Amino acid sequence: MQPVTIKTIAEQLGLSIATVSRALKDSHEISQATREKVKQAALELGYQPNVNASGLRAGSSKTIAVMVPEVENHFFSQVISGIESVAREYDYHVLIYLTHEDPKKEEAFAHLLGNGRADGLLISVTHNKNGYAHLNRLSQAGFPMVFFDRLVEEVEVPHVCTNNEAISYEATSLLYQRGAKKPAFLGLDPDLFITRTRQAGYQRAVEQFDPGAIPLLFAGSGKPAQDLPRLHAFFKEHHPDGFLGAAESMALLLYELGSQENFQIPKDYQLISFTNLSAVPFLHPSLTAIVQPAFEIGKEAAELLFKVIKKKKIYPAERKRILPSCIRLAASLRASKG
């Protein structure tokens, strides 16, 4: 089926293309009766304006791009909701790119954006062992860009994240205070910003509560089928009695491990994890969660991006926005001794 265009409407009504175009834009050069007739025909024929083309003629696509590694993680879906709430206020569309943790996809998407597909980019990066020259090129070319959650420190653009190091220190301290002797850290790729900063908070607590102890570090791949047997071997070797999960996928693996091996949480090991999963209260036992202000992170990042797009002044304090997370206590921790 051929798409309905302005030409289609013009031929249907016996009008010129210019007249139909002006009528759809509510031009006062066209009579009210003709404008209504054109709009009714457009509705009946199912006409959809080409937002991208009209935006390009005005020097803008009226679109912002959001690049994320996944949407199965509830954090990212909530961030996108926050971004969309701001984009609507500016009458912008949101174009979502999923990298699926594939750096080649991220590089290809960045190339597309450099060709004018969108007016700006909000991005949470995937790990790229070859570096981030593709993002540096965009930044140096003046393309508006803001990082959120996963950022690249050597690319000097504004970013929004949570207090990763501080909240991880607080969570690990809580594990010790509830009786853990050998807490372990379950991270993702160790080169990712979120893994490094969360691991730093964990290690600071270990140094304080058990000076000289060797930190127990597990680096997940993000692929459960591969990570579960590795986690089982890690548990058998080190016998940790507490875990700090740097991502909700890590926490869910521990529930799976407990189910397979008949471990009891929190008797055999206690658990705290970063997660924005709405079903946390329904896990058995319910998970003690580090909840990030995902919706607010999305809103803040989008507001920053529109400031860059509209060339408004951004003060130094605005370039690095850190929003606090909170810990919601639940049954995956033992009862307080106090």
Rank of each mutant, 00 (worst) to 15 (best):
S21A: 10
L231I: 13
I322L: 05
F76G: 12
V206I: 15
A42T: 05
L305D: 00
L151P: 00
I6H: 01
A41T: 13
E101M: 09
G220Y: 13
E84C: 06
A133H: 06
E261K: 09
G46P: 09
D91C: 03
T288D: 06
S54T: 12
R35A: 10
R334V: 01
G114K: 03
A331D: 15
L56M: 11
Q264T: 12
G338A: 14
D191R: 15
V71S: 08
P281M: 07
S336L: 06
P240L: 02
Q140K: 12
A110C: 03
R117Q: 15
A42K: 05
A225M: 14
G116C: 05
Q203V: 15
F143Y: 13
L283N: 09
K267R: 13
A335T: 09
L95Y: 13
T8Q: 12
V94K: 01
R328V: 12
L257Y: 14
K310P: 00
D102Y: 07
I123L: 01
P3F: 05
E89V: 04
L13E: 07
R22M: 12
Q40R: 15
H93C: 05
A166M: 13
P281L: 12
H28P: 00
V79W: 08
K105L: 09
T63S: 07
P285I: 07
L323M: 02
L283T: 11
V160D: 02
K320Q: 12
L329A: 08
Y132R: 04
T99I: 01
R319L: 08
S259T: 12
S259N: 14
S273R: 06
D227M: 11
V79E: 09
Y176K: 04
A171V: 10
V68M: 12
V4S: 06
E318V: 02
G120P: 06
T172P: 14
A87E: 03
K320W: 02
P158I: 01
G46W: 10
E29F: 10
L174A: 04
E107C: 03
Q32C: 10
S124A: 13
N130V: 02
L95T: 11
D26I: 02
N262P: 06
T197D: 15
V94W: 05
V160L: 08
E89T: 11
L244V: 02
N130G: 11
Y176R: 06
E207L: 15
L329E: 14
P158H: 01
Q260M: 08
Y90I: 00
L121C: 10
T8S: 15
G179Q: 02
G220V: 09
K299G: 04
A301Y: 01
A225H: 14
R321A: 02
A65V: 00
